[in-house]
Every structure is written in C-alpha cells, then in structure tokens.
C-alpha cells in the first residue's frame, strides 16, 4: 500500500471516529412544534379561550424549552403557555405579552408533551391562571391597556433543544477539527508526486507575507469601523459575533486573493484541480446549510442577525468567491502559457 493511500485511510478513520464520537456525546436533538390559530377578542371575551399542540420528544435527556411567537401587530390579549408531560404533570409554564423566552434546564423523559395555550384578555382570568400556575410568586397587576377587540392569526413555535451551551461549543470545535481533517485529506490527495517535496518556494513565502500584511491592514481598518459601529449601536440588527466573523472572512478573502493572483496560494507539486473540487464541496455544503436557515425562516426571525443563522452563508460566499477566483486565475494562466 502506498504512503498516500495510508495517509488517506488514517485521515478518513479520524473523520469517521470524530463523527461517531459526536453522535454518542452530544444529544443534539431538537424537537419542535407549531401552532397556527386565529384568536378573536370581542368585549373582553376571547374565542377560542385556549388551544393545544403536541410536542413529541424522542429521546430522554436535558432540554431547554424555547417559546416564540411572531406577529406584526401586538394582539389585544395575553398568551399563557403551560407544557405538561404524558401523566399531566406540568413541567413548564409562562405567561405574558412577550412570550419569547427560554426555560430553565429540565430533565425530560421521551414522550409526547402537551403545549396548552390560554388566551387571556381580562384581569380575572389572568389572576386565575397565575394562581393556578405560579401560586408562590408575586404577580404584577394585569395591565389591560393593550386589550382591544380584533382578530389575530397567531403562529406559536415551541422548541425543546439541547440544554447545555457546552454542547454548542463542542459542536463548533468538532466542526473546526473536521474542517482541518478535511483540508489534510485534500492536501494528501492533491499531491501529484508523493516522492517529491510539497512546499512553498521562497517567492511564494514572500508573497504570502505581503498577502498577510494587506489582510492585516484590512482587518485593522475593519475592526476599528466595527468597534465604532458596535459602540454607537449603528446597526442593531447585526449581532457583534456576525460583525467579528465577517471581519475574519474579509481578512481571509484579502489574503487568499493576493496569494492566488501572485501564484503563492497552492504549493508546488500540488494539483490545483483537487483543491478547486474541495472548494466546490465546501461551498455547496455551506450554501446548502445557509439555504436551510433561510427556508426555516431562522434568519432575522427574532430581529437580530446571529452567527448561528448566517455563519454558513458567509462562509459559503467566501468559498464561492475563492472558487471563482481560482477558475479565473486558471484561465489567465492557461492563456499565459499558450
């Protein structure tokens, strides 16, 4: 067996082990349900007074409930939500004009949970609900200033997701590790001659230095602009993480552009075609995940652009740009050689 084949097998084994370990360690399960209902308020009476939706949880574990609803105009009533397990035991309840919230970490058994929504438009029903669900808490007086007659099409979303942020961090670290393994695999596959040394020559190293310098200045200017934007809250719709991530993408874009145009991006004795195919795979993967986020209406669902929603799209855009640049450079090189 050749050294190249051995390296490929080792890297593939590492990737498979990593994926298996992740599946075993991380719960990573998200269960969700939606409720679409039309609620009418007339003379302080709500119709219907309540609605139900089932939330199936397939695997026992620690979860956090996230409740959310969206509507362009505030409804003229308060929504209260209580979630009960199959035995009828209440595990979570919340009420308020703003229903968007996360629960505490809960140990849940697999089964179908009932999400009961109650629509409250008067002080008496609100007090009764609070008495039944939060008997030991001091509840603020019912503010009826928002109560009004009308009909609203409500869309409620309840999600039970993994409890711990550490799961998210482990997921990201595993993603980075998987990316490194993928790049290592491509680097092995891209070597044209396994007996020859695959390295950068002195001009390529010098050009990479220049590329890094331009990337550094770009990121310096960008970081200062981002600091001002964040300090003055000029673009509240974009989260700080997205701004930082976009800066990293910009710096990488500048560095890759300069290095590619100066023939300092690919090592000697490396197949450009293999790298271009790999870039294509990464682009498709990231754009696909970005489109899934778009299709799920996750982007800007809560009015803020978050890294978990647009990170893949940003990566996809950068990779697509690099891919196009590689193709253009290939065409220029061929013409030069001719």
């Amino acid at each position: 067996m050749s050294k190249k084949s051995k390296n490929v097998i080792i890297i593939l084994a590492c990737m498979i082990t990593l994926v298996c370990a992740l599946v075993a360690i991380l719960p990573g399960y998200h269960y969700s349900t939606k409720l679409n209902t039309t609620v009418t308020v007339k003379d302080g009476k709500v119709d219907p007074a309540s609605a139900r939706a089932g939330l199936p949880i397939g695997r026992s574990g620690k979860y956090v409930f996230t409740a959310d609803w969206w509507l362009e105009n505030d409804p003229g009533f308060v929504t209260a939500l209580s979630i009960s397990d199959e035995t009828g035991r209440e595990v979570f309840s919340v009420s308020g004009q703003e229903l968007m919230c996360d629960s505490v970490v809960m140990d849940l058994q697999a089964g179908i949970y009932t999400c009961e929504f109650e629509f409250l438009a008067d002080a008496a029903s609100y007090a009764a609900y609070c008495q039944a669900h939060f008997p030991e808490e001091d509840i603020a007086d019912f503010d009826d200033s928002f109560v009004k007659d009308g009909t609203w099409d409500m869309v409620y979303s309840i999600e039970a997701g993994p409890a711990y942020r550490s799961g998210y961090i482990i997921g990201i670290m595993a993603g980075i590790l998987f990316g490194i393994l993928f790049i290592a695999l491509v680097a092995v596959l891209a070597r044209k001659d396994t007996t020859a040394v695959s390295k950068y020559d002195e001009r390529q190293i010098a050009m990479q230095g220049k590329a890094a310098k331009y990337a550094f200045y770009t990121m310096l200017v960008y970081s200062m602009a981002a600091a001002v934007i964040l300090d003055l809250n000029l673009v509240p719709v974009i989260s700080p993480a997205v701004l930082l991530f976009a800066g990293a993408m910009l710096g990488a874009g500048v560095m890759v552009t300069y290095a590619l145009l100066k023939d300092a991006y690919f090592k000697m004795n490396e197949s450009k075609r293999t790298w271009i195919i790999a870039f294509g795979i990464i682009t498709v993967f990231n754009v696909f995940l970005g489109i899934i986020s778009l299709a799920r209406n996750e982007i800007l669902a809560d009015g803020i652009l978050r890294i978990s929603e647009v990170g893949n799209l940003l990566c996809g855009v950068l990779m697509a740009y690099i891919l196009i640049l590689c193709c253009v450079k290939n065409i220029i090189d061929r013409r030069e050689e001719e």
Partner: peptide, 16 residues
C-alpha cells in the same frame, strides 16, 4: 532548482 514555474517567470520578467 526546486521552485515553481511562476517564480522563474517572475525572475525573467523582473517582477521578483
């Protein structure tokens, strides 16, 4: 000499 073709090209063109 153990460099890339582009490096020889750059030396001949006076770019490097």
């Amino acid at each position: 000499v153990g460099v890339s073709r582009q490096t020889i090209n750059a030396i001949e063109k006076g770019d490097y």
